[in-house]
């Protein structure tokens, strides 16, 4: 069974998905980051594939993308690093990125290798529904990859239902209209989260963008199944001398 589906079968509340950028802070940090996240209580890990022009991302993740690219990260390098990851990591793994690097790598090849190394889901914020439906959906399904779409506070109810129908794994509810790592108050979004809950959607819902600590995590979890943390963890890693220690302290502060 797909590990994302398995997770949501067993856990419905306070699901914590942590984002990290492949190749950050060091080219080969990913194994250690994944091991620490698994050990210290994360439920899902989202690995960002760095891109020169990450449109939906704020300054923190932009910077991590730039460092990762300078370190030499690329899709082939990442797949090489993930080759034996399933020997030690049981967490569901999601790859997040932008369309262009994947197109150049070859989408079919990308899906095939992602399946082989044990990836469970994909997030591509700049792949719109129309293109997904007409060209790509079958390919992701064929390789057992869940495709996670975003919804925002500005997304109409009708469109949320359509996106929910096309999404699998879970639905990524962007907390406010913004790029990642924003400071907009998540508490103000209660009505929106409640609306999503009341819609009784097919997919579980995780809230992302602006989740940075225990209080924002709890606000997000009140009406949804959990949350996604990205920029705050990247910031913690920036000056880390010991990835496991940093991850332990970071997750403890959020979960306990």
């Amino acid at each position: 069974m797909n590990r994302i589906d398995q997770l949501f079968k067993e856990k419905h509340h306070r699901v914590l998905n942590v984002y990290c950028t492949a190749g950050y802070p060091k080219l080969d940090s990913i194994q250690q980051v994944l091991a620490s996240l698994q050990l210290r209580g994360a439920d899902i890990v989202e690995i960002g594939m760095p891109y020169s022009d990450p449109l939906a991302d704020g300054p923190v993740i932009q910077q991590s993308n730039m460092v990762a690219l300078e370190n030499g990260m690329s899709i082939p390098v990442l797949f090489e690093q993930l080759k034996n990851i399933r020997e030690t990591i049981e967490l569901p793994i999601i790859l997040m990125g932008y369309m262009n690097p994947i197109l150049q790598f070859g989408l079919e090849k990308f899906c095939k290798i992602a399946e082989e190394v044990g990836v469970d889901g994909i997030i591509l914020p700049d792949l719109p529904m129309y293109e997904f439906e007409t060209e790509y959906q079958q390919l992701f399904e064929k390789h057992g990859l869940r495709f996670i779409f975003l919804v925002t506070p500005e997304t109409s109810e009708e469109r949320i239902r359509k996106i929910d129908g096309l999404s699998s794994g879970f639905l990524y509810a962007v907390s406010s209209s913004s790029t990642t790592g924003n400071n907009k108050a998540i508490e103000d979004q209660e009505m929106y989260f409640k609306k999503l809950q009341d819609m009784k959607l097919k997919n579980p819902i995780l809230v992302g963008f602006g989740i940075k600590d225990k209080s924002t995590f709890q606000s997000a979890c009140q009406y949804t199944n959990g949350a996604i943390i990205g920029s705050a963890y990247i910031r913690a890693l920036e000056h880390s001398m010991d990835i496991d220690l940093t991850t332990k302290e970071f997750l403890n502060a959020i979960l306990h």
Binding site: L55, P125, L127, P128, Y130, L150, T155, V174
Partner: peptide
Amino acid sequence: GGAFIPEMLYP
């Protein structure tokens, strides 16, 4: 061509 945009820009 096309419109390869994140959902935030959709409306």
